[in-house]
Write a protein that binds this DNA or RNA. Structure first.
Lengths: 139, 139
DNA sequence: ACATCCATTAGAATAGTTCTAAATTACCGC
DNA sequence: GCGGTAATTTAGAACTATTCTAATGGATGT
């Protein structure tokens, strides 16, 4: 695919989500949505942008990640306080968290079948289920 | 139960967990382990200590909550970045999180039966499963 | 091209938590 | 009980991740 084609594709992706395709957003989107699912912090995205010589400020990285999240292009994952991970996989899935390495892996929701749910509080309905399998090196 | 009995009971609880029963730790433990399960932030514990006129600094509240957690008397729950919740229920259970109110409720692990787990990464074993049912007001 | 509105930016501000170093307190053996 | 030692507490500074502010720059529609 040509560089122009890729650019147009990303621009279409952003516009389809109701986000204006600016230079900075396109640069970050190009790296985020390169076909490989990622779990990244704002700092990591910023570093990646610097390596690409894309001149995007940290404030813009935060703005963009938050915009992408509200637009449904990313999902936030919080594991251990401290920092927020942004997940490029917005489909129905859960996570494995390596407590020693501090990194996340996706697992399909179907691999953790939940047979039944408890009654929810009066007037409330389910918005999402988060499942995290915390693992460590076997003893 | 007399005040002295309660004090001795708490001191035994802390010592049993390998934590020295200091005045500050006993004061916080008295409030934390009063028989009602709680999900509290450091700030809330500090406020409670002030209301009890217990003169415990915020730094000590953090130290104590972390000590209690490593000693197995408390469990950390992280939901939304920002702040850490400390859970006085260390048994096998999951959580319901009210996205609007920002508060947590316990649910027994058995109320969310998990039929099967995926294969874990080579050399890793399960340390814990976290399940959070996120709810909001029904539309 | 113009006007409008939205996005970007550096730097300050904020929130939650941890660190530092000095003073206090608990514990242990005598 | 008493003293020595090591652990604990504390105020305040420091730190980290994130958001805010207000000024500049850029995209979009006509």
């Amino acid at each position: 695919m040509s560089v122009k084609q890729k650019h147009d594709e990303l621009a279409a992706l952003l516009q389809g989500a109701g986000v204006r395709p600016t230079r900075q957003r396109l640069a970050l989107a190009a790296w985020l949505f390169d076909g490989h699912d990622k779990h990244v912090t704002a700092e990591q995205v910023h570093d990646a942008a610097l390596k690409m010589r894309a001149h995007v400020s940290l404030a813009t990285v935060y703005n963009t990640l938050n915009n992408f999240t509200t637009a449904g292009l990313l999902r936030q994952v919080v594991i251990d306080g401290g920092q927020i991970y942004f997940d490029t996989n917005t489909g129905d899935h859960y996570h494995i968290f390596d407590e020693e390495g501090g990194y996340l892996t996706d697992i399909p929701a179907a691999s953790v079948p939940i047979a039944r749910l408890p009654k929810l509080p009066q007037g409330k309905s389910l918005s999402r289920i988060d499942v995290v399998l915390r693992v460590r090196t076997s003893s």
